[in-house]
Design a binder for these strands. Structure first.
Lengths: 286, 286
DNA sequence: AGCATCCTCTGACTGTAGTCAGAGAATGCT
DNA sequence: AGCATTCTCTGACTACAGTCAGAGGATGCT
């Protein structure tokens, strides 16, 4: 039973590995302050707001923690020239030293933990942790509808076009700014604020058909089932809009995508548009 | 790099799974109190001392947490009839209900976390977590020298003899209480207070030789490299005592043990004692 | 029987984490 | 230009976690 394995591991974790956080102790700083220092050090040029979101802290609490780092001479906080309400946090040289110290402690702690294992065991552990990491991250991805001009959507679209350009033998040119599509709905899957998958539907052909557009999965996240999940999500949305059929087009170079459509119950159909990049056409009845 | 995978997972964990602990929140009780309730519920008849060790709490702190559970009517604390300095903590019926509630919350949380995964992905995650769990537990096993009459040593010896009796075609009879062995050193590997591997060395044959005795690994822990690790540890101890050679005898039925000795650089030698159960004899130069 | 030790508990603290309300500056919108 | 909104910060708290010293009963050892 998976939940049992998860809960058992949770226990092992808090007793054994969780102690990794303890590497942040013994620095004379409270845990929260160390965590903040670590976060500032690993995301240079971050704003107070960004920190608040990533660490999920109360604004007053965070402000005080920042003041503490500042009086220790580890960080500087200056107004963001772009939007002077925001303030940007940076490490001072002393802060960099303190950050490196945290890095070192964390690394040493991790190394000490696995030191008793043989080379073979380390490989197995490495493999197991990477798998668990990917799957847990994939499970906790959040799907949300976004406007096409939302920063995440823009970023995802940019990456999608770049991928097409790299993979099509003839390259890909979106041909100028993307025209607004009335009635279209776009969905972005994000993890830690980063877009990791994207896709949308728009009305097409007739009143009971929707077309799936711009299906994209971040290259580091392939094999985690995100594509299929996004597809299911879009189908549900289309059904909720009263569509009884979805169609899509794609390029022959995108083998995994085509395989995924087939696994997900899509059937090949005849060309239904004049998209010069499209070579394969699919439909699915909902 | 394993430490990288470990540290990355650590991050994912604290942000995602770590939230399992949050299932203990929303009960109107502080986290520490819930954790204590959970511990009391999962180890019936435990003493205050046992709780203190397992949860690694200050005695004053723990005492106050226990008082809190008691005034809530969830536990009773009564003197241990065997040793009236100790006190034994038990759940009341109301406490059992509260414990079941924690169990349910924890289970629901775990189920919700993995809900977005497909069956195939769940299997992979299950497998990965079990592997990681075994290896992390194996890595954090603690080796310590013990007197042969130490409870852990007794328990390990009992299990060792039981195993021999089960595996030898002719059975095994230790022949009365074990005689004290002058100069012998025994080591127990324990995890969560349970013995998981055992072994010892004693002077033998001549001044520069030690004999390895009673090598045992808990059946649930085989394949985690504990035997080889115990062996290395014993060899180091022998070398520190000025021995230049270790010898050991074993029975032909113990295939994995024999394979391990060979992998660890042991060579077969002639019979060097009259142990009726021994069929194979090994030595290793240190 | 006497003394060291063990076990649990209370008292008296300190520091950390986190919440909530609201002030004041900067910005966006119409 | 005016007004709502955003962002960060301070003040004022509350609860929680954890430490240390020491009291007092129970036990083990010789």
């Amino acid at each position: 039973m998976l939940t049992e394995a998860l809960r058992r591991f949770n226990r092992t974790y808090t007793q054994r590995i969780g102690v990794l956080d303890e590497s942040f102790l013994g620095t004379g700083r409270p845990l929260a302050v160390s965590r903040l220092l670590f976060e500032v050090g690993s995301t240079p040029g971050t704003s107070v707001r960004g920190l608040r979101e990533r660490l999920d802290l109360d604004s007053g609490h965070l402000s005080r923690l920042l003041r503490r780092l500042e009086t220790e001479g580890l960080t500087t906080t200056t107004p963001d020239p772009v939007d002077r309400r925001r303030r940007v946090v940076e490490l001072t040289p002393a802060g960099r030293t303190a950050y490196d110290d945290l890095e070192r402690r964390s690394e040493e702690r991790a190394a000490a933990l696995v030191a008793p294992l043989t080379a073979r065991q380390r490989e197995r552990l490495d493999e197991a942790l990477r798998t668990a990491d990917l799957l847990v991250r994939a499970a906790t991805v959040r799907l949300s509808e976004v406007a096409p001009d939302h920063p995440s959507a823009q970023e995802a679209t940019r990456r999608y076009f770049a991928e097409l350009d790299a993979r099509f033998p003839e390259g890909f040119d979106p041909g100028g700014p993307v025209a607004p599509e009335p009635g279209a709905t776009y969905v972005v899957a994000s993890s830690d604020g980063e877009p990791v998958a994207y896709g949308g539907i728009r009305p097409a052909l007739d009143d009971h058909t929707a077309e799936i557009k711009r299906m994209w999965v971040h290259s580091a996240w392939r094999g985690a089932g995100l594509g299929a999940r996004m597809l299911r999500h879009l189908e549900t949305l289309a059904a909720a809009q009263g569509r009884r059929r979805v169609v899509l087009d794609t390029n022959g170079a995108l083998h995994e995508a085509i395989a995924m459509y087939e696994r997900s119950g899509y059937r090949r159909i005849e060309r239904y548009n004049d998209n010069p990049y499209a070579e394969a056409f699919f439909e699915k009845r909902l």
